[in-house]
């Protein structure tokens, strides 16, 4: 907090403040998801056959999504490790793998939604589906934003290499990505597993 004011120190101080600020942002995002979960919890029974979770959700689909997202969290961890070793190429490589896995996840999710819609289960069918689509697609939107962001960081890494700013960006990005993973684990449990049970 009270550092001597050399330019180098000041710069690092700024970068660490940004990471701290991002932690707080994640906390707010956490509250945002908590509210959506609460809404879902209230409305999840407000539906009639054939639009119940049991009849709509397909186990292989959401299991694959879960598996892919968990793996992407792992690869983003590998990216951070590469960064800490100061290796740019593996860093960009693992980020690319993470992006691809993220894209695959989004693809599967869109596929799942389209299937449900074709069965007549749309967002305006009933309260359960309204809260389901809102909750799951808010997470999906977060993942999509993360993908674009990660690509931007990869380009910047190529341009500037590993230095204090890019380092901070990768650090913050991976925090975000792990956070989405944690949210998904809750989604997987509360929405899908409890839905098919």
């Amino acid at each position: 907090m009270q550092q001597s004011i050399t330019p180098q120190h000041e710069h690092e101080h700024h970068e660490s403040m940004k990471v701290f600020g991002f932690w707080i942002f994640l906390m707010t995002d956490c509250i945002l998801f908590a509210c959506l979960f609460a809404t879902f919890a209230v409305l999840r029974t407000h539906t009639d056959s054939p639009f119940t979770g049991n009849e709509l959700f397909e186990i292989p689909g959401f299991t694959a999504e879960t598996f892919i997202l968990l793996t992407s969290s792992f690869t983003s961890g590998l990216a951070t490790l590469a960064m800490n070793k100061g290796k740019v190429k593996p860093l960009i490589g693992w980020l690319a793998v993470t992006v691809l896995l993220g894209a695959a996840f989004i693809g599967l999710e869109i596929n799942e939604f389209m299937k449900m819609v074709s069965e007549g289960a749309t967002i305006s069918t009933n309260a359960f589906l309204s809260s389901f689509y809102t909750l799951v697609s808010t997470h999906g939107l977060h993942v999509s934003v993360g993908i674009v962001w990660m690509i931007a960081i990869m380009i910047q890494l190529k341009k500037h290499g590993i230095q204090s700013v890019t380092k901070r960006k990768v650090q913050v990005m991976s925090l975000y990505w792990h956070f989405l993973d944690v949210v998904w684990i809750f989604l997987f449990t509360v929405v899908y597993l409890m839905g098919v049970m």
Partner: peptide
């Protein structure tokens, strides 16, 4: 956002019908 989802997409989160609360 939820109110807007109701108004824009015709969802039923806070509506009287469709099981909204």
């Amino acid at each position: 956002a939820l109110l807007f989802v109701d108004r824009f997409f015709g969802a039923h989160i806070f509506t009287m019908d469709g099981g909204g609360n």
